[in-house]
Simulated assay, not measured.
Amino acid sequence: MSTPDNPQQPQYQQYPTNPSGAYGAPQAAGYGQPVSAPRNGFGITALVLGIIALVLCWTVWAGIILGVLALIFGILGIKRANRGEATNKGASIAGLVTGVIGLVIGAVILIAIGSIFASVGSQISDLQDCLKSATTTQAQEQCQQQFSDSVQNR
Results as ranks from 00 to 15, higher is better:
1 M>C: 12
4 P>V: 11
5 D>Q: 11
8 Q>G: 06
9 Q>V: 14
10 P>M: 08
12 Y>K: 02
12 Y>T: 00
13 Q>I: 04
13 Q>N: 07
14 Q>F: 09
15 Y>H: 03
15 Y>V: 07
15 Y>K: 06
16 P>S: 07
19 P>M: 12
20 S>G: 05
22 A>L: 13
23 Y>H: 05
24 G>L: 09
25 A>V: 14
25 A>C: 08
26 P>N: 11
26 P>Q: 12
28 A>K: 00
29 A>W: 01
31 Y>P: 03
31 Y>T: 13
32 G>S: 06
33 Q>A: 14
34 P>E: 14
36 S>K: 04
37 A>K: 09
37 A>S: 14
37 A>F: 08
38 P>I: 10
41 G>K: 05
41 G>H: 07
42 F>S: 07
43 G>H: 05
44 I>L: 15
45 T>C: 05
47 L>Y: 04
48 V>P: 01
49 L>D: 04
50 G>C: 10
51 I>N: 02
52 I>V: 09
52 I>G: 01
53 A>T: 01
55 V>Q: 04
56 L>T: 07
57 C>M: 08
59 T>W: 01
59 T>F: 10
60 V>M: 09
60 V>Q: 03
61 W>E: 11
61 W>N: 05
61 W>S: 09
62 A>L: 14
65 I>V: 10
65 I>A: 06
67 G>D: 01
67 G>K: 02
71 L>A: 11
71 L>S: 05
71 L>Y: 05
71 L>C: 10
72 I>F: 06
75 I>K: 05
75 I>L: 15
75 I>S: 08
76 L>Y: 05
76 L>T: 07
77 G>S: 10
77 G>D: 02
77 G>Q: 07
78 I>S: 00
78 I>P: 01
79 K>D: 10
81 A>I: 06
81 A>Q: 01
82 N>M: 10
83 R>P: 00
85 E>I: 08
86 A>N: 00
86 A>G: 09
87 T>I: 08
91 A>V: 03
92 S>N: 11
93 I>Q: 13
93 I>F: 12
95 G>Q: 00
96 L>D: 06
97 V>P: 08
99 G>P: 04
99 G>W: 02
99 G>Q: 01
100 V>W: 01
102 G>D: 07
102 G>K: 03
103 L>C: 03
103 L>I: 13
104 V>I: 15
106 G>V: 08
108 V>S: 12
109 I>W: 13
110 L>C: 02
110 L>Q: 05
113 I>H: 11
113 I>L: 14
115 S>I: 14
115 S>H: 15
115 S>L: 15
115 S>E: 15
116 I>F: 13
116 I>W: 11
116 I>P: 02
117 F>N: 15
118 A>S: 15
118 A>G: 12
125 S>Y: 04
125 S>P: 00
125 S>T: 12
127 L>R: 08
129 D>I: 02
130 C>Y: 11
132 K>P: 03
133 S>Y: 10
135 T>K: 15
135 T>E: 15
137 T>I: 13
139 A>I: 10
140 Q>E: 11
140 Q>K: 14
142 Q>C: 09
142 Q>V: 11
143 C>N: 03
145 Q>P: 08
145 Q>I: 02
146 Q>W: 06
147 F>P: 01
147 F>C: 06
147 F>Y: 15
148 S>I: 15
150 S>Y: 03
151 V>K: 11
151 V>C: 12
152 Q>A: 09
152 Q>N: 12
